[in-house]
């Protein structure tokens, strides 16, 4: 009898645990099953999220903006091939990313505890917005010690030199932060901004795409797939179009 009571109790507990677990599952765990129909609804669309169109920066302070503008201008400088990262709006791209879900680290697991990791474990810092906020003053402090001025105030050659030191991990930053990882993040974000669709703030006039001959957000190339040895004739197009559409700036 006692044994029966025990097993019933166990069963009840198990049931409670299982239903709690079911409730805790994210909705996406229950995938839609699509049979015999093409999901479609009039005017339905998953439109890309547009960035906050207000002028200026949402995340960066003036000092941070000065650093980022100076740094990206050296990472992808303006040259005879065309505009660089600064001219194509990359700082604004990074600003909007840091102000949004990416900046909050929505793609990371960020719960404590946080023991010190090793290099093979990948990203070992906080969210990207925390990294920018924490590291920019450290880099400026180090630059002031090493070169006599904050990074943005240095000449291009000194900036290049400072970035190279940072990239090697040889900059002596205070507070145990990882200068090399910050450099890599900054470089990655700069490249993203230079080549992402212009609707996200960078790649203004699709200059990044023009540079490498990427035709942009196109569905397919059926009209051209059989035409070998010819250059693709159409210019790049953004998700929001291109200048040649009616009066719209990309």
């Amino acid at each position: 009898m006692a044994r029966d009571g025990m097993s019933r109790r166990v069963a009840l507990r198990l049931g409670a645990v299982l239903s709690a677990a079911a409730l805790a599952l994210p909705r996406s765990a229950f995938a839609d099953t699509i049979r015999r129909r093409l999901p479609w609804g009039p005017a339905a669309a998953d439109r890309p999220e547009r960035i906050d169109a207000r002028p200026g920066y949402l995340f960066f302070t003036d000092a941070e903006a000065a650093f980022v503008e100076a740094a990206v201008a050296r990472l992808i400088p303006k040259d005879e091939l065309g505009p660089g990262a600064l001219e194509t709006g990359v700082p604004r791209f990074i600003d909007r990313q840091l102000a949004g879900p990416y900046g909050q680290g929505d793609h990371f697991y960020l719960q404590a505890p946080m023991p010190k990791g090793v290099a093979t474990q990948g990203w070992q810092m906080g969210s990207p917005s925390e990294v920018y906020r924490l590291l920019i003053p450290q880099v400026n402090r180090w630059a002031a010690d090493a070169y006599g001025q904050a990074f943005a105030a240095l000449g291009p050659d000194k900036q290049d030199e400072a970035l190279k030191v940072l990239e090697k991990g040889d900059a002596s930053l205070k507070g145990g932060v990882d200068g090399k990882a910050f450099f890599e993040l900054l470089l990655q974000n700069t490249i993203e901004g230079f080549f992402a669709d212009p609707i996200y703030g960078g790649n203004r006039d699709m200059a990044g795409w023009r540079l490498i001959g990427f035709p942009g957000a196109r569905y397919d190339y059926r009209d051209f797939v059989g035409r070998h040895g010819e250059a693709y004739p159409l210019p790049p197009v953004s998700l929001s179009g291109r200048r040649e559409w009616t009066g719209k700036q990309s």
Partner: peptide, 26 residues
Amino acid sequence: LEGSRSLPTPARPTPLAMPAFAWKLD
């Protein structure tokens, strides 16, 4: 504006859809 979906019939059972462009084109 709203796209269209072709009609699935026994003779042509696969409905092809055109997406909406209301969000994309002014």
